[in-house]
């Protein structure tokens, strides 16, 4: 038999959880929208990158100039087909940790670069691991987590998604 004090504590905990979820539910639709926009942007960027490599890709030896751990990429310098010195970026998200270990400042690596002056033409890919780049998922797992968590919050507390379509007093009915 439950004691009234236990029921009171559960009621307080439940009310706090409810308020907490409602506060998160206010932000969740915006999180979801931002997640969708970011997902579409990543998807588009990845497919444009692959299309550009297919259409204009050329292989060359490049020297690693820096490693940017914040953005998970490396800077590379190389001489393109017309003899011009160029710099590019190498995203490290496509490669295993063992491969990334070999990419150090000053190291010479073989890359595929985009031999055309178009948007995002600074991007390069490792020539020996081009198949990995093609098979890689277009979107990082982090984005799916953001979408999944915000969706879950909305599934529990969907009230704020109905703002503007349902009267306010019916929105927050108990």
């Amino acid at each position: 038999m439950k004691l009234p004090v236990d029921q009171g504590k559960r009621g307080i905990v439940g009310a706090i959880a409810n308020v907490f979820l409602l506060c998160l539910a206010v932000l969740a639709p915006l999180m979801f929208l931002v997640g969708i926009i970011s997902l579409i942007d990543q998807w588009g960027a990845h497919h444009r990158f692959l299309n550009n490599l297919e259409s204009y890709g050329k292989t060359v030896d490049a020297v690693v100039s820096y490693i940017d751990e914040d953005y998970n990429r490396a800077g590379v310098s190389f001489i393109d087909a017309s003899g011009t010195e160029r710099s590019g970026t190498l995203s490290l998200r496509y490669y295993t940790p063992e491969v990334i270990e070999t990419i150090r400042p000053g190291a010479t690596i073989r890359v595929i670069y985009i031999d055309r002056l178009i948007s995002e033409s600074e991007k390069t890919a490792l020539a020996d691991f081009y198949s990995e780049v093609k098979k890689a998922p277009p979107v990082l797992a982090d984005y799916w987590w953001v979408l999944g968590i915000s969706w879950l919050i909305i599934a529990i507390k969907p009230q704020f998604v109905f703002l503007g379509m349902v009267d306010y007093d019916q929105l927050i009915k108990v």
């Binding site: 639709p29 979801f32 929208l33 969708i36 969706w151 909305i154 599934a155 529990i156 969907p158 998604v161 109905f162 379509m165």
Partner: peptide, 12 residues
């Protein structure tokens, strides 16, 4: 996008 979220109200 918004309506997809509104559909979640059908779950609970």
């Amino acid at each position: 996008v918004r309506f997809f979220l509104m559909l979640t109200a059908n779950i609970l």
